[in-house]
Every structure is written in C-alpha cells, then in structure tokens.
C-alpha cells in the first residue's frame, strides 16, 4: 500500500498550488505516474480521498495517467513502450534490455476554485 505515502505527498503538492493562487479549494487534478512507480490508479485515488480530508483538496477529483517506460533491446535493437511492466523484449524475448524512463511522478494539471470566479 505505498499509494498512501504517495497520496500524502500529492496532497501537499496540490495544496501548495492552491495556496499559491489563493484558491478556495481544488476541484480537479491530474497526475502522470511512470509505470515504474507501480501505482495502482484506483488505490491512489482512494488514498488521495482520505489524505485530502480537512485540506483545500478535500473532495477534489483525481485523474491518474500511467506513462510506460521505453524498453530498448540490446540484442535485436527493438524499441517498445509496453503498457505492462516488462522484463523481456516483447519482440525477441531477450532479457538483455535497457528500461528507460517510466519513473516520473508529476502533478500536471490543477483546476482551482478561486473567489473572483464566483
């Protein structure tokens, strides 16, 4: 259940954005999770809901986008972006691959409710 420790950091990050813009509350947010973080989106969403209670992000709707890594085969040269976690080349099944990227964890978009919109 590492989703909870990540959710706590996500709440801090989004509340930081909300405060910076003097917002009343956070309506929606979107984050990009590299597949290497092994985050189960539904679990992160549940954990976020709990961690956000009593903050500006309480009730905010979270969307999680999973970003695949790039797998480069050192044997056949294939470059693929498997959606599932891969330990072999999807083309030639070699284990001699290099896994690149897929370790990002970014808050990419925030929708805020601010006073002057009311």
């Amino acid at each position: 259940m590492h989703e909870f420790s990540i959710a706590t950091e996500l709440v801090a990050a989004v509340v930081g954005e909300a405060e910076r813009h003097g917002a009343r509350r956070v309506e929606r947010l979107e984050c990009q999770c590299g597949a290497m973080r092994q985050i189960v989106p539904a679990m992160l969403i549940d954990a976020f809901e709990l961690a956000a209670v009593d903050t500006l992000a309480e009730g905010a709707q979270l969307t999680v986008k999973t970003v695949p890594p790039t797998v480069r085969c050192r044997d056949c040269g294939a470059e693929t972006q498997p959606t599932d976690w891969a330990v072999e080349c999807p083309r030639c099944t070699s284990l001699n691959i290099a896994v690149e990227g897929g370790d990002e964890l970014l808050l990419t978009s925030v929708t805020l409710e601010v006073d002057d919109e009311r």
Binding site: A13, T111, E113, E117
Partner: peptide
Amino acid sequence: MNVEVMRNVFARND
C-alpha cells in the same frame, strides 16, 4: 481556473 503545472509530487520532501 485551470493551471497547467509540471510539479514533482515529491517537491516538499525533496
């Protein structure tokens, strides 16, 4: 109000 950000989720810890 919609804000496009590119913020590392672990910014506070980091």
